[in-house]
Design a protein around this nucleic acid. Structure first.
Length: 766
DNA sequence: GTTACTTGCTTTTTT
DNA sequence: AGCAAGTAAC
């Protein structure tokens, strides 16, 4: 016990040992948030206030859940495997498998990832003859997910115009389609569970009684539905239910774009009448200047619960600011500094290069590669998202549930077996007519198409029969062979990597079995009924028998179903990890939760960071500022900030002003490596081209541009404001050509972007 | 049915 | 620029 609470500071100790009442912990960056959360759980168990089964701990990512489990098993001598610690989606999956009948789902329901969902929607739009110009599949998907994230079904939405009415209609049809196919998307996992528990009183009461303590990580990232879900389970408004312990940081809320609602924090405080609000403001990560910068910057946001980080560490070094002429010279500067850091003994994995958007990584990657510095880029394609792996998964899905039309369509003609668009159309028509799945409609198709389709069905049936008694890894191997995926890729010239990935699936299956506590030899298809005795049957006072979703997943899911869930819910690691110690490259978003001794924040330019699209959204800039706050607080010792005057983006050269965030940082925390200039394109000092010589080593590009800009007829310059008789006022965005051929691209705001011939167009300077 | 070319898109990401 | 997806030609 003493051990457990040892080394906690006053605030942390207070949070860990709070009485059993709803509590909100405002945990700043680097303040020991995960530590508090896990110690709280350990303390509750160790003091006998609750048994491990009375705990429900929810996170957003698998990584966070794993981290919590690892730390917990280090603190307590208990088996954490049976504990309810997981992601919202993972926990819902567990509940729905157990209570699939009450939730009106087939036991083998499958989970659509985002890709699958989009293709399901495309299929629906086609079937409904919907103009996908007017209703782009992505928009329809956002609409549906947005509604689900708020806990709304199609019939809950009052459409305010014809377009929305159509979307609502499509939402309903989409849900029908999923139900027919026995599939659920990510948002559906949560919504379905929410509905299950709110409609089924005995079930709800059972879980409300069971979970005496509910702990939520990253509470600022919860969406409306997740908050409702938590309210329901904690029995908010009723006399029974658990205690909600929420940990979060409103300053690190960076997921509003996907439905997260920071407002849930104050709503929670109000609705749960929270008396225990504890702020963890002691930072154990960063040096003083870094923390000052973060504090001063975030103070510019208006909607805050209020929190200021402090540290006992000294000021440390100032933040180093570099202005580059171009994205290329920014990259070469990063290389130089990285080399210096490594030379001075820094470990490569303690150097992180952050950027706002993935498109920015390429130039830096290229530079690192040329310099021979090992690096690792986060955020690439994940293992289970690779095309060949998805194909194999689709075959496995058909083993378990042949009525999954998405899976069927993905592989019915892959590898090619002579089943083309025509055959599929015929099949689709039959399926519509008899209102069955594509698979079930195959017997209705006659002729040549019917023969090839029947051949495919035979392949699936045959493989299913053959693998009946096999263990999962073996089944995977047989499916890879029977599907002819392996032989197909063997004939492709670039197929070697793909084959390797496919073969890796067999070991992934083996590993999965041992991690999830399945017997290695258990038949992959074994139904849960065979093992039902190991589950906990509960009869409550009303005489309802409840199978608690308590026991290992093996009780409620066959190894195959479980493996497929795993593939959807945990897409696997980002690309093969480079063995060597490598420089870490990632977006600011994916850096959340990580920390490094040395951090570069690159591309600090208006339009990039803050991103231009943010100015259009409500509180968009505030979210960008929080993003910057997250970025700054990743650094322990040294922080570099950089921006470039010229940048190639999407095949166009862009000229950005330096980020407004520089003006919001405390001056004495900054050390300008290049002279600080009051740079401004619109008024104030003239453009940077006018200043020669330019700073830095690589100013050739800039000078070229400068020369070009001046040589163009009339001396028009990029960034200059102009007036046109017809289009009104605008800004020159780009100039191409020279002399009589010079043309300018001008942004006229409301009148749009125009390209005008400078020798013809009548423009006035403003 | 397959292949080669054109078009369009491009913020952030997890499940 | 670079990539995915859709379309036209083989």
């Amino acid at each position: 016990m003493q051990n457990l609470l040892h080394n906690l500071n006053e605030e942390q100790l207070a949070a860990v040992t709070l009485p059993a009442q709803s509590a909100l912990i405002l945990a700043g960056a680097g303040s020991g948030k995960t530590r508090v959360l896990t110690t709280r759980i350990a303390w509750l168990i160790q003091t006998g206030q609750v048994s491990p089964s009375g705990i429900l701990a929810v996170t957003f990512t698998n990584k966070a859940a794993k981290e919590m489990l690892t730390r917990l098993s280090a603190m307590l001598p208990i088996n954490t495997r049976g504990m309810w610690i997981g992601t919202f989606h993972g926990l819902c999956n567990r509940l729905l498998r157990t209570h699939h009948r009450d939730a009106a789902l087939p036991q083998t329901f499958q989970i659509l990832d985002t890709q699958d969902q989009l293709s399901a929607i495309k299929r629906l739009l086609k079937a409904q003859n919907v103009d996908d110009e007017k209703f782009p599949p992505k928009d329809v998907m956002y609409f549906i997910n947005g509604a689900k994230d708020q806990g709304l079904r199609a019939h809950d939405i009052e459409p305010y115009n014809a377009d929305e009415r159509k979307k609502v209609e499509l939402y309903q049809l989409y849900d029908d389609q999923c139900q027919r196919e026995g599939v659920v998307d990510f948002a559906e996992l949560l919504l379905r569970t929410y509905e299950l528990l709110s409609r089924n009183q005995p079930l709800r009461e059972h879980y409300q009684q069971r979970f005496q303590h509910i702990l939520v990580d990253e509470f600022q990232d919860t969406n409306d539905l997740q908050y409702k879900w938590l309210k329901l389970l904690s029995g908010h408004g009723g006399q029974q239910g658990g205690v909600l312990f929420a940990v979060g940081d409103d300053d690190q809320s960076i997921y509003a774009f996907r439905g997260a609602n920071v407002g849930n924090m104050s709503a929670f405080e109000r609705e749960f009448n929270v008396k225990n609000l504890i702020k963890l403001e002691q930072n154990y990560r960063s040096h003083g200047h870094i923390l000052d910068a973060a504090n001063v910057l975030i103070a510019n946001n208006s909607k805050r619960l209020g929190k200021n980080l402090r540290t006992d560490a000294g000021h440390g070094e100032q933040l180093r600011v570099y202005e580059a002429n171009s994205d290329l010279s920014e990259a070469s500067w990063i290389i130089e500094e990285t080399k210096n850091l490594i030379h001075d003994g820094a470990s490569r994995s303690e150097i992180a290069v952050l950027y706002r958007s993935n498109a920015q990584s390429r130039v830096i990657e290229h530079a690192l590669f040329s310099a021979g510095i090992p690096y690792h880029v986060y955020g690439g394609l994940r293992y289970f998202q690779r095309a060949e792996v998805k194909h194999a998964i689709a075959y496995l899905q058909l083993m378990d549930n042949p009525h999954n039309d998405s899976a069927f369509l993905r592989v019915v003609n892959f590898p090619a077996r002579g089943i083309g668009v025509r055959s599929i159309e015929t099949l689709q028509a039959a399926a519509d007519q008899y209102r069955v799945s594509l698979y079930a409609a195959v017997p209705y198709v006659t002729g040549k198409a019917g023969t090839s389709l029947a051949g495919f069905v035979k392949l699936i049936e045959g493989t299913r029969f053959e693998t009946q008694q096999m263990a999962l890894p073996e089944l995977v191997r047989i499916v890879l062979e029977q599907s002819t995926l392996l032989s197909h890729y063997a004939t492709e010239k670039e197929g070697a990597d793909r084959i390797e990935n496919l073969e890796q699936m067999v070991s992934a299956a083996t590993q999965f079995l041992s991690e999830e506590g399945y017997g290695q030899g258990a038949p992959a298809h074994l139904g849960p009924q065979a093992q039902a005795s190991s589950g906990t049957a509960v009869v409550n006072e009303d005489g309802f028998e409840i199978l608690d979703a308590d026991a290992p997943l093996a009780t409620v899911m066959s190894p195959l179903s479980a493996f497929l869930s795993h593939a959807s819910l945990e897409a696997g690691d980002n690309q093969a990890t480079i063995g060597q110690e490598a420089v870490q490259m990632m977006t600011v978003h994916s850096a959340k939760g990580l920390e490094f001794n040395n951090v570069f924040i690159t591309g600090l330019e208006e339009g990039l960071f803050p991103h231009e699209s943010s100015s259009r959204e409500h509180d968009g800039v505030e979210e960008e500022r929080r993003l910057m706050y997250v970025a700054i607080t990743r650094a322990r010792q040294r922080l570099y900030l950089s921006f470039a005057q010229t940048r190639m983006l999407h095949g166009q050269t862009r000229y950005n002003m330096k980020s407004r965030f520089f003006e919001e940082l405390p001056e004495d925390a900054l050390k300008w490596l290049t002279p600080k200039v009051q740079q401004s394109w619109f008024g104030g000092r003239k453009s940077a081209w006018d200043e020669a010589p330019l700073v830095g080593s690589d100013n050739a590009i800039a000078q070229k541009f400068a020369a070009k800009a001046i040589s163009t007829g009339g001396g028009w310059r990029i960034g200059e404001s102009v007036a046109h008789a017809k289009f009104g006022e605008g800004v020159i965005v780009n100039i191409e050509g020279s002399g009589n051929n010079a043309r300018a691209q001008i942004n006229f705001g409301a009148a749009g972007m125009k390209v005008l011939d400078l020798s013809i167009a009548k423009l006035d300077r403003i």
